Amino acid sequence: MSEITTPEGANSQLGQCLKAARQARGLTLKQVAERTGMALSTLSKVENGLMSLTYDKLVQLTSGLKMEIAELFNPAVAAPAPGRPVTARRSISRVGQGQVITTKFYTYTYQCTDLIGKRMVPIVADVRARSLEEFGPLLRHGGEEYFLVTSGRVAVHTEFYAPEILGVGDGIYLDSTMGHAYLNAGEATSATGVCLCTSEAPDLYDQLRQIASREVAPLGGDELPP
């Protein structure tokens, strides 16, 4: 399929969102063209509201920029934030709600997934693995994170430090690029905690989901595919 040329102004929102998303990432149109494989002239027409894009081109564009398609149609998400303007975004997570990834040794429930482009990803973690052999390779991803134990005892293993045991109410803040793992160190079948991951990367949620999905064992319900 090809792009569809439309009257001037008809696609102004798409153009404005593309420009805002590009500027928020500090990219020129030429750099966007290089990353996406799209023609510079096409991108220029889109930004100026002179051209629309078919779905396959939207996928090509957003994949190259590592962003979600919805960002191109939501000015509040795509707009850069000089002076940190109020966006009035809000999301409530109810008990039992969230997108779930379950494996034999842990369950991650991602909260507030209706918000796109989050710079912070909240996760409720149910930890069952008791050894690194069970858990698998240490996790690594961009940004930083904070883990707060809400039940049981959790052993925190990191790449450069000796393991630490955390009890209910204890928390740890760490560099997420450092290898790390949370293990069950209590007598109960599992330990639970709340993990807040943050990064400047706009695709942090996708990164985390791909990492967590490495050994998915689907159990039905809201579990995510790998």
Rank of each mutant, 00 (worst) to 15 (best):
H180C: 09
V46P: 12
C112T: 08
D114S: 13
T198K: 01
C195L: 14
T158R: 10
F147I: 08
E3N: 08
V100R: 08
P226A: 15
S2C: 04
E8N: 09
R90C: 08
I211C: 02
S176A: 15
P82D: 02
L27A: 07
D56N: 15
G9N: 15
L132H: 10
S41P: 01
G117V: 04
N184C: 06
G98R: 01
Y173S: 10
T5C: 07
K66G: 02
G15P: 08
G142L: 12
S12Q: 14
G26K: 03
V100Q: 07
K45D: 06
Q31W: 00
D170Y: 05
R119F: 11
T42F: 07
Y173T: 03
A78W: 04
F147E: 11
A24S: 14
K104S: 14
P226G: 15
D222H: 14
E3P: 04
L196G: 02
V168P: 02
A78D: 06
A88M: 13
I123F: 03
R84F: 05
K66C: 04
E47Y: 01
L72S: 05
R214I: 13
Y108T: 07
A155L: 14
I69L: 09
V154L: 04
Q13L: 11
R140G: 03
P85C: 02
I165H: 12
V95K: 13
L204F: 03
L27H: 05
K104V: 15
E47T: 03
F160G: 06
R89M: 00
G143M: 03
Y182A: 02
D126H: 11
Y55V: 14
A188Y: 04
S91D: 13
R128G: 14
L183Q: 00
A70Q: 13
Q207T: 07
R22H: 00
G171Q: 04
G98H: 05
Q210C: 08
F135K: 06
A10M: 11
D206N: 10
Y173K: 04
L115N: 10
F147D: 12
S44Q: 08
P218F: 05
I211M: 07
P137M: 03
L43Y: 05
A78Y: 05
T177H: 06
V149L: 03
L115V: 15
G15N: 07
I116N: 12
G167V: 01
H180K: 07
G193S: 00
E8G: 06
G64Y: 09
M120G: 01
A162D: 12
L148W: 01
Y173E: 08
V77W: 01
I116F: 15
C112N: 13
